[in-house]
Amino acid sequence: MFHWLEKNPFFFSVGVFVVIAFAGLIEILPNFAEASRPVVGLKPYSVLELAGKNIYMKDQCIACHSQLIRPFKAETDRYGQYSLSGEYAYDRPFLWGSKRTGPDLHRIGNYRTTDWHENHMWEPTSVVPGSIMPAYKHMFTNIADIETAYAEAVTVKNVFATPYGDEIKGTRAAWEAHKPAVLAEAAKIAADMKNKDVKDAVAAGNIPEVVALIAYLNRLK
């Protein structure tokens, strides 16, 4: 029987495909509808937070940080309540990570603040002596790409029915109209910061990457 298969590449390949595809069907499909439901009260990311998430991705914080608190007492003591599936409903992609060279960040917004992040992102060892995390000084001058974040909000609203309000629409005019709201949110964060370049940039209508990133980190709760 098998020897016959080995002489018939077509059926051989079909056989291999069926055997490997089988597990996916049984293990992955059944969960699909259920797991993407949001927990009660979960709000979609604001445009500024999305921009911060994109910086988190661009600079690959996920290389060292997880966002998944496992249900062990040691872990809930360190990071807070264990993670729930419905908390990730608006995470595209999921950012659980697979390596904790640094600590988990799923609830970092509960126990670190804007000014701390400012110090830490500028020079981690200034607050945590012995830290091996790189300093991300370039984030204080690079300007975040807010328009792309807005486009992302429009996309997930239109394609995946993420519940954004009417202010998120796929037109340039809508984007221009929404910009001041994003800037206002950024200004609140910049007010808690000390770096002069950052404050000046925000005042001039540009949002440095670090501001958006901190908005995102503060949102992780």
Binding site: G80, N110, Y111, R112, T113, T114, D115, W116, D192
Partner: peptide, 11 residues
């Protein structure tokens, strides 16, 4: 004046 300290609520 120094900055913000997070609230631990009931943690």
């Amino acid at each position: 004046a120094l900055g913000r300290m997070p609230a631990y609520h009931d943690r």
